[in-house]
Amino acid sequence: MNKWRLPFLAVLCFVSESIFVDVWPKGDLYVYYFFVPRFFLVFLVLTAMHFGGTRAMGYGFIFGFLYDCVYTELLGVYAFAYTLIAYLAGKAVKWFHQNWFVASLLSLSAIVLLDSYVYGIQLLIGRTDWSFSVFWERRLWPTLLLNLAFLLAFSYPLERRLAKIRRSEQEE
């Protein structure tokens, strides 16, 4: 039973991104600004912190590939990025103390990294013609804001949850 707790949490974070965009009111704000939920990335960074980089990389690869298949239909992009970010996060937590603040900061930098990378790919394959300043104003900034709000509201309970799962796994 304990084995399934972490995957379940991962699925929840993964699915909630799509649901969040679906139920978000579609006003002018939605059309002009791109609030991209990166809840799974937050989960990934926290997982790397509590369970180590290797395990997080596994989750990153599987769910990154799911993201590619289900949403973007551009295979490999997220699978690569999530795995790499999980690896880097796993390395980074060794240099810092593990606390809530560091986790939030790491998550935000991971979001900047991921979004810039995806923007670069879209630019490369010619699916967008945005300049970097437009990208910054309409996409990156709102995305960071949204995920900061998510972090403020949910990172603490999420972290408690992960710590609990880790403890129960160690007991077994």
């Binding site: 991104e17 799509s18 649901i19 969040f20 965009v21 679906d22 791109f34 991209v36 939920p37 289900v70 949403y71 973007t72 995806v118 879209q122 699916r127 967008t128």
Partner: peptide
């Protein structure tokens, strides 16, 4: 019925 959306919205699609 719409059951999902592409969250990253680089390409506006629904499922």
């Amino acid at each position: 019925t719409v059951i999902g959306r592409n969250p990253d919205r680089w390409r506006e699609t629904i499922i």
